[in-house]
Design a protein around this nucleic acid. Structure first.
Lengths: 151, 151
DNA sequence: TATTGTTATACTCTATAACTATA
DNA sequence: TATAGTTATAGAGTATAACAATA
């Protein structure tokens, strides 16, 4: 049984952002399924390819993900053969996460698939509007991750 | 320890939407705290004031909230004296949720507080940009709640 | 037999606490 | 003593299953 969305909620940012966020996660997750990775894992690959090898904890910090949560993310990437955990010679407590060759290929493919999912998410908008909304939202996000920022 | 957000994530919709959604919830929750109600409860008041008394289940459907979850939302409103549960004479299984006088006052005040929180959320944007992004996002949200739509 | 409201339960996601191995 | 990674555990949020009252 479907239902028209209440007018008062269509203007409420927490509601609209929540709805679109959930839908974005669904669409991107579905898009990435062929690669066997999730949204957070694609994000991890993106950061690693952009910025080079780093420790698990640093990666988590870059993604705004707790160090206990990043473990599973990296586990999945390792199981899929997309990254390797190399002991850091300078600090044998830490791993350096290194993207493998197939990891690099997966990152490129995943990036494309995510972009398609995003186009679908904003399918009701023109390409120009898509760019406008993405740009404005990016500007609204704080420059830096809050010091305590979990998730 | 703060950290600049990775460029690859600033353009990723699931990331940007998620970040802003969490922040919107935090700001709106804080803004509504003086009223002793949460974001979902303000949304419930909005719908009830706009559309008049309805059953709990119908209210949940309007909000995209499961009928087992709406119970707590309505409980809170009732405890705060903002709504009353009246048995529906036409169907004694159901309640008609009716907004009280102080509920109507709270709704008006809450609506104002939420708008302030939204302005703060998009503080980096001009008023015009604020309107643009809100309008575009509202258009990107599906017209109707999906038939199965939980949450 | 089906439906409204309710409770108990389970599941997902993520953080806190505690452990190990290094530093 | 402090830190990287890990595991076990707990908490928030929300769904599924089952029940009483009513249709």
């Amino acid at each position: 049984m479907s239902d028209i969305i209440p007018a008062s909620l269509r203007g409420r940012l927490s509601y609209v952002l929540g709805t679109l966020h959930r839908r974005a996660l669904d669409l991107e997750t579905e898009a990435l399924a062929p690669l066997g990775i999730g949204v957070k894992q694609q994000a991890a690959l993106d950061v690693l390819v952009d910025e080079g090898p780093m420790t698990q904890q640093r990666l988590g910090l870059r993604l705004g993900i707790d160090r206990t949560t990043i473990v599973t993310v990296v586990d999945g990437l390792q199981d899929a053969g997309l990254i390797e955990r190399n002991r850091d010679p300078a600090d044998r407590r830490a791993y350096l996460i290194v993207v493998t060759e197939s990891g690099t290929a997966a990152q490129r493919r995943g990036r494309r698939l995510v972009r398609q999912a995003e186009r679908e998410l904003l399918g009701a908008l023109t390409d120009e509007e898509h760019g406008t909304v993405t740009g404005l939202l990016a500007r609204a996000v704080p420059e830096r991750t809050p010091p305590d920022a979990p998730r």
